[in-house]
Design a protein around this nucleic acid. Structure first.
Lengths: 207, 207
DNA sequence: GACGTTCATTTACCGCTGTAAAGATAATTC
DNA sequence: GAATTATCTTTACAGCGGTAAATGAACGTC
């Protein structure tokens, strides 16, 4: 009777194209360079077309956040899989986390920029976060089970301490907050050993 | 022979008025509510007048950042002065830091929002940061001197760990990143004790 | 094959932003 | 009062996110 709507596939393809263009612009020129007009120009369409795929700019940014959390998840998973010892895996994911922040600062900053309040796309965003921090929590639990760590609190709280510390260090570095005399190369190993030591009731100093 | 330029006092007064209006708007309605036109409307002048006192919006925001760092410095100083024991002062400033973030989220978020690159007003901004973190560094040094803490690294690095951890926790809370089952009230005491314990070679578990 | 119908896209417009230049005002000296 | 100069307001502009009307293209039906 009428023209059938686009297939879900076609929509997904276009959505991915838009997100890729947005990400490219973001990483090349910062958040201000990621305008609807610039995205449209990049993919060769009008800016109004984007509204057929995202209700608002906040929604597009949320979708880009989810995508970035999945990238983070992959990086952390790969880093964790490189080691058998859970403590070594913890070190590895901490380094991988910081590395992502340093290599792709604009993408990283976007992860934590709260454009006003939580948007409607919040549930999948939360899932992406939970999966990412779940890696850290599971490693801590494994380390505790294996006796390599005497965890005082629960693993989830401990994982949040790792998360907060790693994020804090990255943000201090990216924002130029590190006071002269203190470098990220100093901070990261210190943070890891301090957390590993401090999270144990019987602290055993490590390197 | 001609109209004399405004006195430095008058300029300072108007500058302060503009900053106060900007801060009010920021804390009431978020960063988007802090437009030049809104600021001008608040102080009763035209929006272009602001350019006689700040070269750009980035400069105005930088000035507001410096002002906010001074507020942070005062809060931390007051918190530290409340105790004789440097370790207790450390706990106090950590709580004061987090409290400021929770009480004034918009102001706090602005402290760490890097509008593009470092602006021209960077030097005074850096000074404000150094003064703020200096409080923490001095307390750590005092604790180490008094034998209350066996500091492994130098106090400045340790202070950055406190800073990074506290900032990370605040940002996780403000951004709604805390996974269900983990609250800020759990995290903050944990962070403090973990850092205090972990920063000592001979860790002595505390509450 | 021409016709409506329906979706997809473009065009045009709105109010807003930061910014810059032009015009008006106010304050001083002669 | 005239001239001068600093300050302020007005006006204008390009770009933004967002919306609605106008256009274009693909389809099922006759």
């Amino acid at each position: 009777m009428a023209r059938p709507p686009s297939t879900a596939e076609a929509v997904a393809v276009t959505t991915a194209e838009l997100l890729t263009a947005a990400q490219t612009l973001l990483e090349a020129g910062g958040i201000d360079a990621m305008s609807f007009r610039a995205i449209a120009s990049q993919v060769g369409c009008s800016h109004s077309k984007i509204y057929s795929y995202f209700d608002s700019k906040a929604d597009l940014v949320d979708a880009l956040r989810i995508r970035s959390y999945e990238l983070l998840f992959e990086r952390l998973s790969a880093a964790a899989a490189d080691h058998d010892d859970p403590i070594e895996s913890l070190r590895a994911i901490a380094h991988a986390y910081v590395r992502l922040g340093l290599e792709r600062p604009q993408l990283y900053s976007m992860l934590y920029s709260d454009d006003g309040q939580m948007s409607e796309t919040a549930p999948p965003l939360l899932e992406a976060k939970v999966r990412a921090i779940g890696i850290c929590r599971d490693l801590l639990a494994s380390a505790a089970d294996a006796g390599a760590l005497d965890l005082v609190g629960d693993p989830l709280t401990a994982a949040h301490l790792f998360w907060a510390g790693a994020h804090g260090i990255v943000q201090l570095e990216l924002g130029g907050f590190l006071v002269v005399g203190c470098t990220l190369e100093d901070l990261l190993p210190n943070l890891i050993s301090v957390l590993v030591d401090g999270l144990s009731t019987r602290a055993t100093p490590s390197n």
